[in-house]
Design a protein around this nucleic acid. Sequence first.
DNA 1: ATCAACGTTTAT
DNA 2: ATAAACGTTGAT
Length: 699
Amino acid sequence: MALSLSGDEEEYDSEGEQQRAANRPKPKAGPSAAVKLPSNRSASGARRRRTRCRKCEACLRTECGECHFCKDMKKFGGPGRMKQSCIMRQCIAPVLPHTAVCVVCKEAGKEDTLEDEDDKFNFMLMECSICNEIVHPNCLKVSDASGVVNDELPNCWECPKCNHAGKSGKQKRGPGFKYASNLPGSLLREQKPAKEDAADATAATAAATAVSAARRRPERDETPRSRGEDPQPRPQPLAPLLPLPLPLLSPRPRPEDKLRKKRKLFDDDEEEELSGRKKEKCDEPYFSKLLHQIKTEEEDQDADEEEDGDEGRERRFRSGAETNGSLGDEAEPDDKDSRSALLHACVRAAAAVGDSDQSLCSSPRAGPSSEAGSETQERGPPRPKARRKRRLANRELSRELSRALNSEIQETENCLANENRQPLKVEPETENGETHRLHTHTHTHTQTQVTHTTWNRWCCDKRLWTKIDLNRCTSITPLMLSGIIRRQPLALDLSWTNISKKQLSWLINRLPGLRVLRLSGCSWAAVSALCTSSCPLLCSLDVQWVEGLKDAQMRDLLSPPTDNRPGQLDNRCKLRNVRDLRLAGLDITDTSLRLICRQMASLSTLDLSYCNHINDQSVNLLTAAGTTTRDSLMDINLSVCNRVTDHSLTFFKRCGSICQIDLRFCKQVTRTACERFIAEMSVSVPFRLTEDKLLQKTC
DNA sequence: ATCAACGTTTAT
DNA sequence: ATAAACGTTGAT
């Protein structure tokens, strides 16, 4: 084995050479211009490298073997130069190494030996993100100022000394963003304000660095971020899930257009906004109050007062301030602040209140942070013991889910050829199909009310987060992204958001179990992330009204990945498992339809409404002999397709499974033809007209 | 000692 | 700005 290994290496290396030619020359042979040791790795400045928690969902996954980094690994035939973890396995909550000790007492973290939550916090190791010191909070003899816990990274805070001195340093990225700067399609960059940092490239020259960093910060905040695509107003289509109302769509500006100018990219920026502008930290009364609420209410699930929205199909939490389903009005600074605060608290709460997120996190306390921190400061009551048990159970559950996910991907891959298996469930039985939303609350009064419910929900159970709805959410922040990853939803709605390609790519790469993805009204620039990422279990894709999505782009979406090594070439379409495809409002032609017919063997729901190029020939293609769509198609929406005529109806007679044909507002389709269709079909399949030109199978 | 991979530097 | 490389740390 060892012998053949070296052989392989050589072989692969030469092969890699060919591939690399375009990318990068072979590493130089000369004296390695290697990494310099941090010059100031002095006692307190020495920053411990973190290591994976081995408990989170990511850590529990097996290597995908397909991502960029896997392909580099020797075990997958790569050269092994990159030495990075599989993209699917990037730890969500990296921990301090076991060898880390308190700089004061030289002992390790002792929280495991303690019961009381306050004690746990006081005896766990906390690493300061500014001075890098690792201490037991208890070993600090500072009484007047408290540390500010970073909820996004276990055992991380701004120690009382730094906090008290008003220092603000480079903060640590939150979990899930750890290696992002190193990823193709990465979301984050290292927060190095360029030049001046050359001197302090090694994190630890605490004070001076931190102060100057703080001074530089605002500049970064100013960086505008636009979509790069034109921001022209486009028609906002009807909600895809609703029955199609009148096509009286006057083009209206996308709500986010006006907000697009500015977009925050970094966790820190958000934190900054909070702490900088409003000084809202976790010891701020507002949060204390919130957290208190969470604590007192978390067990009380019945206290829900949420309204049912969207025909009860999805339950959302809407604020009183929200109008017309648009969140676009949060632009006012105050409002925005409060929203930021809420979001922040949301994630914080979820981490702290220990739903099964506990299993996602490394240290004994998943989010050691806010909870422990605020309790320490507030002297809250110790937690009931029952909770600990529940967490344990949850941890096992999560592990179980993770295993299940891995095998499910495998299974799906294996079963692609004969795809007659029962459809994947979009919602687990444990859940009522609830969709969760983040919200803006403008008025304190409503706020408190809704907040109750929202926190309650958020904190209850991770399994409730099988659907996450950010529809029309105009600013997708890293915090939100990391919150999504933590919850591993099965369904994700990002419609009419200005999510960027990087963000989407980052998300998709970390949501291997995603079944439903809604990207309606996003830019093609963003949607194109789907071209390079794989979504093995995706069964429902909504790309309606995606600007710039035409035949050429559709081809890119449907074509198999091109970058696989020979021998492992995957010729299958990335979206081959899609059963529900929504293409309303796109300028696609039969070229795309041919591809769809060929690639999506299980397509059962197809929305082509408002597609001006779709005509009878298109329908002919979809229903032609030899196509799988002919038998798989159950529900087709051709409303407002003005080139479709009565003739199409004769084509649909070939479809073995057809249940619904929506031809509403097709100018060239007559009621008579519909009635004739019903009459002729009645022998085998009873249809009826539930609305003008809307044909539905009865019973 | 070996393997995995973190976090920085270097190349493009 | 981004991707690749790689010295070195951490786990076993």
